[in-house]
């Protein structure tokens, strides 16, 4: 992931935080691509924090008319930026459709039809229409949001954000329910057409998004680094709460209270135990997949294979992320224990 400005927003307080939140909401509602958004808001955040440190009033940076500031700040946003955002919104769906349509390319051994003559009942057109319609509803909601947020100044930021996201989700949900009920027919098309459309779409998206690839690479931080920063920040509080909880439990059970080095020893043992038990998580996906596999029906061998591959991939991806985070937590806790031991030895 990138080193986003969002990680540093907490440094703002008072009128700076309030003003930045409004500007951020306005820019989010412009439907521009992530790079442009990150660049603008990152620079603005840096200026805001610097001005806050110098104790300047926020109107020295944005002037007295926030609406005018936002309009001027976004004046030069081009069509290309909005196009990249639109294409990017459907990217995950297109990648998913590409994977599914590639499996359709595998011929059935019992069929005797040439590759170019083979047809498939594809849902790509249907789902593409649903996604585009949901996006349009979202864009309309964002447009109204930009108009309302300055006209009705007392409207809370969270309410506006929620309404915008909710409108798209409701539209998407209603569409999927109608599809599940069979209200929309599937279209028959050549088997090579859906993957070709997906590849062309992705080629178009990555061509437009090619800008600043090196800089984006340099700005990347791992999720573990971000989580580590957040975890370390609160580690003293977390450990203090644990220590108090353990002692309350001991007192309730009639045992004596722990001293701090005993508590550190317990935490160290827990870290070692957690590190040694991590291999168990790798066993969960095959077990879960087996249970789900035997409780479902499949039309063909290919369907079974696709199901297993997708389910296992999703589970292992989730588990590897979870294990990275847990490894980070164990390492940070061990560092913290070491630090506290060194402090007490020094005393």
């Amino acid at each position: 992931m990138r080193d986003s400005y969002i990680l540093y927003k907490e440094n703002l307080h008072g009128e700076y935080k309030e003003t930045f939140d409004k500007i951020e909401l306005y820019i989010l509602a412009q439907n521009i691509d992530v790079d442009s958004r990150e660049e603008r808001l990152g620079e603005l955040l840096d200026i805001f924090i610097s001005a806050q440190e110098d104790e300047k009033p926020v109107r020295k940076i944005v002037g007295n008319d926030l609406e005018n500031f936002c309009k001027t700040f976004c004046f030069d946003l081009g069509v290309k930026s909005k196009l990249v955002d639109f294409l990017g919104s459907l990217k995950i769906f297109v990648i998913f459709e590409l994977i599914c349509s590639l499996f359709d390319l595998v011929p059935d051994p019992e069929e005797n039809i040439s590759f170019w003559a083979r047809k498939v009942d594809s849902d790509i057109f249907l789902f593409a229409s649903i996604m585009v319609f949901s996006l349009l509803v979202g864009y309309t909601a964002n447009f109204l949001l930009c108009k309302l947020m300055f006209k009705y100044r007392k409207l809370k930021i969270t309410l506006l954000k929620t309404l915008s996201v909710l409108s798209s989700c409701v539209c998407l949900a209603v569409s999927f329910v109608l599809v599940a009920k069979g209200e929309f027919p599937l279209l028959s098309c050549p088997v090579w057409l859906p993957p070709l459309m997906c590849i062309l779409y992705l080629a178009l998206y990555y061509t437009f998004k090619n800008k600043r690839r090196k800089e984006r690479k340099a700005e990347k931080v791992s999720i573990a680094d971000v989580a580590s920063k957040e975890y370390t920040k609160d580690l003293d509080k977390i450990m203090q709460k644990k220590f108090d909880k353990l002692n309350k439990r001991n007192v309730r059970k009639g045992k004596g209270e722990l001293n701090f080095s005993e508590f550190l020893k317990i935490q160290e043992d827990e870290c070692i135990k957690a590190a040694n038990m991590r291999w168990i998580y790798y066993l969960t996906p095959p077990a879960l997949t087996t249970i789900i596999y035997f409780s479902s029906d499949y039309e063909s061998l290919m369907d079974r294979i696709i199901f297993i591959i997708i389910l296992l991939t999703a589970q292992y991806w989730g588990i590897s992320l979870g294990l990275k985070l847990s490894k980070m937590q164990i390492e940070e806790t061990q560092k913290w224990i070491e630090e506290k031991r060194n402090e007490s030895n020094f005393k």
Binding site: D3, Y5, L7, Y8, N11, L45, D46, I49, S50, A218
Partner: peptide, 12 residues
């Protein structure tokens, strides 16, 4: 050129 500012966000 882009560099992390002392306050965290990327600065140009």
């Amino acid at each position: 050129r882009r560099e992390k500012s002392p306050f965290g966000p990327t600065r140009k």
